[in-house]
Write a protein that binds this DNA or RNA. Structure first.
Length: 262
DNA sequence: GGTACTTCTCACATGGCCAC
DNA sequence: GTGGCCATGTGAGAAGTACC
């Protein structure tokens, strides 16, 4: 898809951002997919089964289902999935197709593209289809880049320790509203707190504390910008007892106050 | 009055460094 | 892979200000 022209993308009318109902489930169909489906999880907890392989999904989980794939899914009614799906086709022979699954390390830019794509068609917008094709291509490049970086990272740290650290990082990312303690996270990884802190920074690139703040701020930006929540609601949702402290931290990391983001 | 922000203070958790 | 020491940063509370 790297070399496919934007005009080669065939947009399908099946796309949306939805909050899944508590009773939601996605049953396996008799026929496989006949087009591509970009499937992104904004929040919630669930499980997606792709070609009989189960994946635990949460914020940042991103699939690119391909023609011929079989899928099904369920979610935790207590933490319903919020997701975006975009169906599309691509004309002509393809090389460099993104992997079927990854958890995005940096979600902000990608979520902005997803939100823009969906919003383009909410009202009649001049040249919406042309822009949507460009956005789609941009998202494919984003995924290809993410896949390459992940492979390089895996080469560097392909062992059990790395997997344990990645699992903890994913857990933190999926639960930005919980105030995690390093000793608890270390226990989850089966390491001493001191050693866990050191390895976490080596593998993830951020200290535990810094990573927790970063995921919270990213989530806050999304809630403020896309979910329409006010500053008090967002601070509360992300476990900040002090809205003023939240505001200060937000500005420290983003350069803008929460009210400016809204 | 409600909301958002600033400043100050303080206890405690965390990270960096080093030795083992 | 772990633990000790110490500097630093974080989180929380309080008081006050600005704006609508």
């Amino acid at each position: 898809m790297l070399h496919a022209l934007p005009s080669a993308f065939d947009l399908k009318p099946a796309f949306a951002k939805i909050v899944c109902e508590p009773s939601w489930k996605w049953l396996k169909r008799e026929k496989p997919f006949d087009n591509y489906d970009l499937f992104y999880v904004w929040s919630g907890e669930g499980e997606v089964v792709l070609n009989d392989i189960p994946y635990a999904v949460g914020k940042g989980s991103c699939f690119l289902f391909r023609p011929g794939d079989y899928t099904s899914a369920t979610h935790n009614p207590q933490k319903p999935l919020v997701l975006t799906y975009i169906h599309f086709g691509v004309d002509g022979p393809l090389s460099d197709v993104p992997e079927r699954y990854r958890v995005l390390a940096e979600t902000l830019d990608f979520e902005h593209l997803l939100a823009r794509y969906v919003r383009l068609f909410l009202v009649e917008t001049f040249a919406a289809e042309e822009e949507a094709k460009l956005i789609l291509k941009q998202m494919m490049i984003h995924l290809l880049r993410e896949d390459r970086e992940e492979r390089q990272e895996l080469k560097k740290h392909s062992n059990q320790l790395t997997e344990a650290i990645h699992e903890v990082a994913n857990y933190v990312r999926q639960n930005p509203g919980i105030s995690h303690r390093v000793d608890e996270l270390a226990q989850r990884a089966g390491l001493s707190p001191r050693y866990f802190s050191i390895k976490f920074k080596q593998i993830i690139g951020h200290s535990v504390q810094n990573y927790m703040i970063k995921t919270r701020i990213e989530r806050a930006e999304h809630l403020l910008h896309d979910a329409g929540m006010n500053v008090t609601e967002v601070a509360d949702a992300l476990g900040y007892r002090d809205i003023f402290f939240f505001s200060r931290q937000f500005k420290q990391y983003t350069g803008k106050s929460p009210s400016e983001i809204r």
